[in-house]
């Protein structure tokens, strides 16, 4: 078997996945909910938190499922379906646990959890982990970093959108159009980080 538990400096990977290769700004993952939710600062916070938590847990669980169940059985071609099931299951369990443990948190986080099952960023992080053959520690760190990076990006965008809400934007660009341009400028800012740390 060609996988190892630990192959790369996890601290570098952590910061790289937040800044230099931000999952949203350089890989375009999780755009749909990014654009629709970033209208509101508070929801952005909740969704970002939910994405980070779910991404970290699902990446760890998927790694174990992939390398201890699918690979030994030669069922790697089923990985997409299995990952989706893992994500759905983790989301469901998390929903029940949070509901039981902290109703206040459930109120702020609960509505976002079902949305997350189809968030491209989560599946994207898992697929990157599979294709780049990360070890267990790396996968978890990579997923946590990607989640935090996503969170950071959506908070920034929500803040910017709050500021430009009342600005005179051309009619055709209102809403999605100007948001896209804003994201473009943000992406240029994130490109400024590249060269600091390199991930493959």
């Amino acid at each position: 078997m060609d996988f190892e538990f630990f192959t790369m400096n996890p601290i570098a990977l952590f910061f790289a996945s937040i800044f230099t290769s931000n999952i949203l700004m350089s890989n375009f993952l999780g755009m749909c909910s990014f654009i629709s939710v970033s209208k509101d600062y508070k929801s952005s916070f909740g969704l970002g938190l939910a994405v980070t938590v779910v991404m970290t847990i699902t990446a760890a669980v998927s790694w174990v499922v992939l390398y201890y169940i699918l690979v030994p059985l030669g069922l790697e071609y089923l990985s997409f379906i299995v990952f989706i099931i893992v994500i759905a299951a983790v989301v469901q369990i998390l929903e029940m646990v949070i509901d039981r443990a902290s109703p206040a948190l459930y109120l702020s986080l609960g509505i976002f959890l079902p949305l997350i099952t189809v968030n491209c960023a989560i599946l994207g992080a898992i697929l990157f982990m599979q294709i780049r053959r990360y070890g267990f520690i790396e996968s978890t760190v990579f997923a946590a970093g990607s989640g935090l990076g996503w969170w950071l990006a959506i908070m920034l965008l929500a803040a910017i959108r709050g500021r430009i809400e009342n600005n005179p934007v051309p009619a055709g660009l209102k809403g999605a159009g100007i948001t896209m341009i804003t994201i473009g400028f943000m992406a240029m800012g994130f490109i400024g980080f590249s060269g600091m740390i390199a991930v493959q």
Partner: peptide, 11 residues
Amino acid sequence: ITAPSAFFLVA
């Protein structure tokens, strides 16, 4: 070639 241009072009 980099990511931002895609956002600008979509807009």
